[in-house]
Design a protein around this nucleic acid. Structure first.
Length: 565
RNA sequence: UGACCUGUGGUGUAAUUGGCAACACGUCUGACUCUGGAUCAGAAGAGUCCAGGUUCGAGCCCUGGCAGGUCAACCA
């Protein structure tokens, strides 16, 4: 079962696409139906930019009581793989959307597309061109200079039919000829200058195998697939704006009713510090700069999921950024805010120590322990509480102790008293060092009367530390992820974007101690390690070696507070 | 110098038929906290790319500029 609910806490803003659809509905267009589609090419994994498109397409259908299809745009067998098809379906479902029984492939329509091409030839609207790519390209002219007509443009219908059948039968080599629509070589729109609609490709297709050796081009396939699937609003990104006249031209040739899909373009998502180009992401994977498409540093949906981002937070993010035709760049902090916002409400709190310093409570009996109550989530009382074991030997965060504290340092130092959260007040008496002068452990005493964290005499303490019982703690590996690129717009750099890779994007902390509660964790369960950030258990964890990924740190005003003094 | 598209605080979006430019993130204050980067309270920050015009009144309408983007793959 797929969770199809979308967080509606804030009323979704109407955008220009909604306005257009309402207009169409008012005019009774297409029988007042609303039917969208999400049409990825299965040539890579989906990323956060696709998430925007998915939320948009499915969101519109939900808003207008319509339907959304999933369609794989698989017209180029040389780039497409079944692995990608599967990951895409998985990611769309995980995001919380359901295409029900409406799964399509452009390749489902290969025969109809071919028939349509034959129809165009018969109507004198398409011809076979025997020239090679360079010649065709040079005849195409430039945006400011009209193109010239191919010498093969006025072949007879019979000859074109014969040649196209031979192309289809595999009698010609790749690149030796193509089928072109006969439109207008002088059009100010380059896409109308007799666009290529079929090319010869003797490649194995992931679904149709070796059945075909001619494949339709995007422009020839997309609008017709929309038409045959009954799509009413075909939403795509801005770069297809100039293709729209061609989209309409093909659909006009197909027309046998009043029904007409409408292409609407919106601005694709750009995020600061984030590479979104599929080609570059593929390069990062292929050259081993990351450990696969689902590496937690990747902006892919599978990477974000593994990193601990929730589907709900991605949907909320997508609502928040809106939909326009303005080509902008969104600050990643907005995405991170969306995750924190959701995780803050839902994440289980757990104490943990990433950089341990041993503390011995000298007046606590040896071989004894007790269990203290701890709140699971102060944001949500219904999450209840848990027991945290306390004993003579503990770990605290190394940063929480300073031997010679500056004035405003209120945490542990020799002679000061602090609270151990949910436990007792403790005072540091001794600092134990090794031969190099490194601090190896602290000796403290506790006040048994302060059990639970309050002292009966009402004395206050200036800091509260988180801690973990050494004997009971779960030792685990924690991986801190940072942004993969140091440059604000690495996507802007074509060839040299790798030079901006952040060498510290992955920091592995092999010996961290977490309270025993995390033994119950399953992959993808998320936690807030008090004061350290949000984490989730990774897929490649084992019971012997649990691995936690940091989803996102908490915002850093606490550190600022310290720097003030 | 062709076609198409876009221009509102640092960023992203709003603004009914023209009516005091609103919201969120970010930033900065202060308060409260048995973690907090949470929460609460508050502040700064744009006069809407420019110039004209219509109007009592223009971010919205008109005219002319300017700036940016997309398009010349047998990719999608």
């Amino acid at each position: 079962m797929v969770d199809n609910s979308v967080n509606n806490e804030q009323q979704k803003k109407a955008n220009f696409i909604h306005v257009q659809i309402e207009e169409d509905l008012k005019n009774g267009k297409n029988g007042k139906r609303v039917h969208t589609r999400f049409p990825p090419e299965p040539n890579g994994y989906l990323h956060i930019g696709h998430a925007k498109s998915i939320c948009l397409n499915f969101g519109i259908a939900q808003k207008f009581d319509g339907k959304t299809n999933l369609r794989f745009d698989d017209t180029n067998p040389s780039k497409e793989e079944t692995e990608y098809v599967e990951s895409i379906m998985n990611d769309v479902r995980w995001l919380g959307f359901d295409w029900e029984d409406r799964l399509y492939y452009a390749s489902d329509f290969f025969q109809k597309l071919h028939d349509f091409a034959v129809q165009l030839i018969k109507e004198g609207k398409a011809y076979v061109d025997d020239q090679n790519a360079e010649v065709i390209s040079s005849q195409k002219g430039t945006p400011t200079r009209p193109g010239e007509e191919s010498p093969y443009r006025n072949r007879s219908v019979d000859e074109n039919l014969d040649l196209f059948m031979k192309m289809t039968a595999g009698e010609f080599d790749e690149g030796s000829c193509v089928l072109r629509a006969k439109i207008n070589m002088a059009s100010p729109n380059m896409h109308m200058r007799d666009p290529i609609i079929y090319r010869i490709m003797k490649a194995h297709h992931h679904r149709t195998g070796d059945k075909w050796c001619v494949y339709p081009m995007y422009d020839f396939a997309h609008g017709q697939c929309d038409y045959w699937e009954g799509i009413t609003h075909s939403i795509c990104t801005l770069e297809f704006e100039v293709h729209r006249p061609l989209y309409d031209w093909f659909v006009d040739q197909l027309q046998d009713s009043d029904y007409r899909p409408r292409q609407i373009e919106f601005a694709r998502l750009n995020l600061t510090y984030t590479v979104m180009s599929k080609r570059k992401l593929l390069q990062l994977v292929k050259e081993g700069h990351v450990n696969g498409w689902d590496d937690p540093r990747m902006p892919t949906i599978s990477g974000l999921r593994r990193r601990g981002y929730t589907a709900e937070s991605i949907r909320n993010f997508s609502d928040r950024i809106g939909v326009t035709k303005v080509d902008g760049v969104i600050d990643v902090s907005l995405l991170e805010y969306s995750v924190r916002e959701h995780l803050n409400k839902t994440a289980q709190r757990v104490m943990g120590v990433l950089n341990p310093l041993k503390v011995v409570i000298t007046n606590y009996p040896e071989n004894e322990s007790e269990e203290l109550d701890a709140i699971n989530n102060p944001e949500d009382p219904e999450m209840g509480s848990r027991k945290v074991p306390f004993s003579r030997e503990l770990y605290i965060e190394r940063d929480d102790f300073m031997e010679n504290p500056p004035r405003k340092f209120f945490r542990l130092s020799p002679g000061t008293e602090v609270r151990l959260r949910y436990a007792y007040f403790v005072t540091c008496n001794d600092v134990v060092k090794d031969e190099n002068g490194e601090i190896t452990e602290l000796h403290c005493t506790y006040d048994p009367a302060s059990k639970g964290g309050n002292s009966p005499d009402g004395r206050k303490v200036k800091a509260t530390l988180h801690w973990v019982s050494a004997k009971h703690a779960v030792k685990s590996e924690v991986r801190l992820y940072d942004r993969l690129f140091s440059d604000e717009t690495p996507d802007g750099h074509e060839a040299d974007f790798l030079e901006f890779m952040n060498p510290d994007s992955l920091q592995i902390l092999p010996e961290c101690y977490l309270e025993p509660f995390v033994k119950n964790a399953r992959p993808l369960d998320h936690f807030q390690f008090e004061r350290l950030g949000y984490f989730n258990l990774d897929f490649d964890s084992t019971a012997e070696k649990p691995v936690f990924n940091r989803t996102v740190p908490l915002k850093d005003s606490w550190a600022k507070e310290q720097n003030k003094g």
